[in-house]
Design a protein around this nucleic acid. Sequence first.
DNA 1: CCCTTTTTGCGACTCAATTGCATCTGCGGC
DNA 2: GCCGCAGATGCAATTGAGTCGCAAAAAGGG
Lengths: 156, 156
Amino acid sequence: MKLAYLEKIPQAQTALRATGERVTEPRVAVLATLLSSDHAMSHLDVAAMIAKRHTIDRVTVYRVLDWLVGVGIAHRIAGDDRVWRFMLNAQAGAQAAGKTNAHHAPSHAHAHFTCNTCGQTFCLDKVQPKMNVKLPTGFSTTEVDLKIRGLCAECK
Amino acid sequence: MKLAYLEKIPQAQTALRATGERVTEPRVAVLATLLSSDHAMSHLDVAAMIAKRHTIDRVTVYRVLDWLVGVGIAHRIAGDDRVWRFMLNAQAGAQAAGKTNAHHAPSHAHAHFTCNTCGQTFCLDKVQPKMNVKLPTGFSTTEVDLKIRGLCAECK
DNA sequence: CCCTTTTTGCGACTCAATTGCATCTGCGGC
DNA sequence: GCCGCAGATGCAATTGAGTCGCAAAAAGGG
């Protein structure tokens, strides 16, 4: 766990280069941090993790995180505590960012799980929240978020 | 629309008395406001609406709103703008609050719709987000929230 | 190696929401 | 109908996430 972050740096650099955008130190650090985590992280989680080895400004973390969302590498999740959490997209390991505008696929659907006890949020990628939702007439859907709360395996 | 708020006052008083808790002017005003709305309201929406006729402190609105959630009359919805919005529970009209602790029914499921254009959030009560979610082993569910984004009938 | 374009860092700022405390009030009891 | 007090309100100050403007510092193409 301690070293996971360092190990992910080359992978992060490769993924960033694939975007065609600038590969900067803060971007590498933030992406490597997300790559080393199995759960969604707040901007503060990310900043604290990076701060163990480098100095980085909180504002930069915000901006890089938003940028990662913009280029389609990560996505943001609204928490119950009014804090955004970030997580890599399923296939974001390396290729993902290849296409020019992976911005937001239409009818994008996501499922997340938040533990009531430890507060950690996980992404349920395998779950396609296929539901029988009948919207009122005249309404159309562009995006669906499914949030599940409960107890995770650790806290049970 | 203008008078809806006033018309709801008696109904609000009745519902509040049914809780066995104190029936205060701010509580009546806040509940009447929610009763007169068909969409979720932020604390500011509520405060502004009430301020047309009475004076009320912002903090009191926060507290009353939280209290309404606590006694099971309303529920809160996390918006994409980090603002809480509040809406009455489906059957909250009058009886709802009768039972001592209607706090949170286990396996409570909700579906909300937020319009990308006008920003209004509606509650889709009829929709039972029945989905085939397979959680990782060891995980258990207590609550499910389904958030749908798109265009409402007005904005389409 | 230089120049242009982007990013970064920093400070100040916004704004929803919370907290502490003094004052007021609903309402059960008398 | 009046009293007392637990509980609710108002006000001021505070917290904390996220944003903005701008000057200084890279990144990467030529």
